[in-house]
């Protein structure tokens, strides 16, 4: 990887923003960090201490979008006209999730139109966030090769800029950069190791994962967890790898517009069949199914990695107190 030294991330950011819409995590003044469009180049880039409320998912797999219009007996496709954009400051976990979604939506024209127009600038984490366990899930803390175009790494006194794709190299044209010090890779590795140490052993995740795949968890334990699931859809909304959607038909002038909207497998109606039969009839069955999709061996085989990237957002968003750590702890207990 080509490595440069960078005096300030804002210089790179403003360079990239000249020809693209630029989004970065920004504090909203009310306590949240959200992906927002950069309108003012004087706005500083602040390294997030916690992940933004939403991952990058919605930039590609929109929470609500029109797929086609049916008008006067004709179907009219509504593929979005994506404008060039850059997501600046994506954490390793979220980039791993983008790579995961790239496989799932490989032939989805709506997803791919936005994805192709987007430059991804990753950001190595110098400290662990509160709920994160990316080191264990092999998705961080340092941005993984093949998941970004450019990678920023904050070291003690300076920034490293790593070129991770051909497109990443092209967009740097015209930006004056110094080569990185020779030991940049060692410094980066040492920092990543430090973050992994901060995250600890994460024994409950390992034990829970083993219990889930060993099918040693009885249905009562799942139902006890299910009683705490309100079916709010929070976990599936913030999960960077959840990808389920439902249809929504909207009347429009002279016809209908077919939209798709984010769905959630924790809803009772998600698997309900027209006959009334429901393979996920009880909350416990639905909770089990959700976590099997994140840690089950079958899914790991199919997608080449676990569905969970260890961002810990479900821990923060679940009003029932059954985010990943609590669930894995309970099912992993002997």
């Amino acid at each position: 990887m080509q490595a440069y030294e960078l005096d300030s991330p804002e210089r790179l950011r403003n360079h990239l923003a000249r020809e693209r819409l630029l989004y970065q995590p920004q504090a909203d003044g009310q306590g949240a960090l959200r992906w927002q469009r950069l309108d003012d180049p004087a706005q500083p880039f602040v390294v997030p201490a916690e992940p933004p409320v939403f991952s990058a998912k919605a930039f590609f797999f929109a929470e609500r979008e029109a797929l086609f219009r049916y008008e006067n007996g004709r179907f009219i496709a509504l593929v979005p006209e994506a404008r060039p954009q850059v997501l600046f400051g994506l954490a390793a976990c979220d980039l791993t999730a983008v790579a995961y979604q790239d496989r799932f939506f490989a032939v989805d024209p709506h997803y791919q139109a936005r994805r192709a127009a987007t430059l991804l600038v990753g950001l190595d984490c110098a400290h662990s966030c509160r709920h994160g366990f990316c080191a264990m899930m092999d998705s961080g803390p340092e941005v993984r090769a093949q998941t970004a175009d450019l990678i920023l790494c904050p070291l003690a006194q300076r920034w490293l800029l790593l070129v991770a794709s051909e497109r990443g190299a092209e967009v740097l044209a015209g930006l004056a950069l110094q080569p990185a010090p020779a030991d940049w890779a060692q410094q980066r590795d040492a920092q990543a190791l430090q973050v992994a140490v901060e995250q600890g052993e994460q024994e409950e995740i390992a034990l829970g994962c083993a219990a889930l795949n060993g099918e040693t968890v009885d249905s009562q334990a799942w139902e006890a967890l299910g009683l705490r699931c309100l079916g709010c859809s929070g976990c599936t909304s913030v999960c960077p790898t959840c990808s389920c959607f439902a249809p929504l038909q909207q009347p429009s002038a002279g016809g209908v517009v077919q939209e798709r909207v984010w769905d959630s497998c924790l809803y009772q109606g998600f698997q309900q069949e027209a006959s009334g039969h429901n393979p996920g009839a009880t909350p416990g069955q639905r909770v089990q199914r959700f976590w099997y999709h994140k840690f089950g061996e079958d899914f790991r085989q199919r997608f080449g990695r676990d569905g969970c990237v260890g961002c810990g957002r479900c821990d923060a968003v679940c009003p029932g107190g059954i985010g990943v750590h609590q669930v894995m702890k309970r099912i992993g207990e002997p």
């Binding site: 009310q30 960090l33 409320v53 929109a62 609500r64 309100l230 709010c232 909304s237 009003p319």
Partner: peptide, 26 residues
């Protein structure tokens, strides 16, 4: 309004929402 995000740091909801809140856009 295509959707909502919860509000971390909020004195009441602390970054969480119920099913109704999540459906505010609809």
């Amino acid at each position: 309004v295509v959707g909502v995000e919860p509000q971390p740091g909020h004195p009441v909801s602390a970054g969480q929402l119920c099913a109704k809140g999540w459906a505010s856009g609809f």
